[in-house]
Amino acid sequence: MSGRFPQGLPRLEPAGLDGWMVRLFDAIDEGNMPWLTALVRECETAFGDRLVDLVPSYTTLLVVFDPLRLSAGEARKQLVELLQRLQPDEEAADAPVKELPVWYDASVGPELSRLAELAGMSLDEVVACHSERSYRVFALGFAPGFAFMGSVDPRIEAPRLDTPRRRVPAGSVAVAGRQTAAYPTVTPGGWNLIGRTPAVLFDRDREGFSLLQVGDRVRFVPIERNEFERLGGDTRAMEEGS
């Protein structure tokens, strides 16, 4: 096994009669992702149509297989073989950065001022801080196309709201802890909202469905209101839009 894994990893853990949890790492790190995306690809090739689902997430990959055609023991053997020759996905490491335009504004980002206050920064500095670095998609979950990305500058990390909102408008760009995300559709949510993107994050008619995929690199690009509107963004403030 490659020496780049922490000692004792990866581990295979039972996950029901049709699954194995592959634990590759024990801490969240951007460097995990090229290994995870490589393992996703290798599993697709090796299991073929006996594969039911793959759920990569931060440090793990849940492999779900068809229990009518593969026993847990057979699946395990297959996975052990894969892991022994696994190499990180170099392509993913240098993947082009996907850009998400964001209108950072208090009317659509009511916690912009909270982050500024916590950080002792101006609103513009918070925006600069959030948009100057690229992020890595660690996992998709919570809702279709909802990408958990990290890691934000520790200066603008902020705890979740004490009381989640019942309706967070679609496109809302948000921060919680050291993670950031954009809400694909209207859902409940307790993250700090700092702006809104006009990008369509999940589209059932698009190939691949989700704009963002696990392992992607993403950068948020500040835009003005008129550009946001031109791109089809919904400018309704929280009270009206939520």
């Binding site: 996950a15 801490a27 931060y58 919570f142």
Partner: peptide, 30 residues
């Protein structure tokens, strides 16, 4: 734990100690 994929039927135990069996419409990670 760090969020990870959840299979059908997973019985998770939150800090209140009361288990929740997760069914078909569960969230994909937890």
């Amino acid at each position: 734990m760090i969020s990870e994929g959840i299979g059908l039927g997973a019985v998770q135990v939150p800090p209140d100690g009361q288990p929740i069996a997760l069914l078909n419409d569960r969230q994909t990670i937890g």
